[in-house]
């Protein structure tokens, strides 16, 4: 079961790669990849958040075995999303005064990312959401659960709630007019967080 789920989590990436090799990403492939990886990040966050409510409602407790994996996939697609943004949106927009292979390129890239994160609220909130997942990814091993103790580990991993909220705001603030898709994610996240707030 576990290897199957593990493989399934890679499917969105494989589909993207396949589309890339078959010229099926449309006229603006870099933006398409950015959007797809962002979408899958939110989907895996929602899946991760859904595991506890679904277990409680259905009694299917074996699901817990997949929660860390789903969370890691959220971080994986989030990191890809960020990486594509860094390459296609920041790196590609540099002016390369001293050519591409120069220190000024590296400095310019860092400055350009920092400026965007600092200046554009939707980037700021997206970056925070991703950054909040980093400690969770690091402490996702069984060794870390033992080291922290179950209670502390659980407490730390509530950071995923912040990521979920940040992710939805990130999406909401970036769309131009049609808020349908961010609104769907917002309702799902509200529902799943609400379940935790109101359970006795």
């Amino acid at each position: 079961m576990k290897p199957t789920v593990l493989a399934a989590g890679l499917l969105p990436l494989l589909v993207l790669i396949w589309r890339a090799f078959n010229a099926a990403l449309g006229a603006n492939p870099l933006l398409e990849i950015t959007h797809e990886t962002g979408d899958w990040t939110l989907r895996f966050i929602v899946i991760t958040l859904a595991i506890t409510p679904v277990r409680r409602l259905t009694g299917w407790h074996a699901l817990i075995r997949f929660r860390r994996m789903m969370g890691l996939y959220a971080f994986f697609y989030g990191s890809l999303h960020f990486l594509i943004y860094v390459i296609a949106d920041r790196f590609a927009g540099l002016d390369f005064r001293d050519g591409i292979w120069a220190w000024s390129t590296a400095r310019g890239l860092v400055a350009s990312i920092w400026e965007d994160v600092y200046k554009r609220p939707y980037i700021t909130v997206g970056f925070i959401g991703l950054a909040a997942m980093a400690p969770l990814a690091v402490t996702s091993t069984t060794g870390w659960i033992r080291r922290l103790g179950g209670r502390n580990w659980n407490r730390l991993h509530r950071l995923i709630y912040a990521t979920a909220v940040a992710g939805v705001i990130h999406y909401w603030w970036l769309v131009k007019a049609d808020i349908l898709h961010p609104a769907i994610y917002a309702s799902l996240v509200a529902l799943l967080l609400g379940f935790r707030a109101f359970r006795t």
Partner: peptide, 17 residues
Amino acid sequence: AVTAVGAAAGTLGVPQA
């Protein structure tokens, strides 16, 4: 690999070029 991914993509309804 291309065939396997292609089959997977087909089931997910990915638009073809």
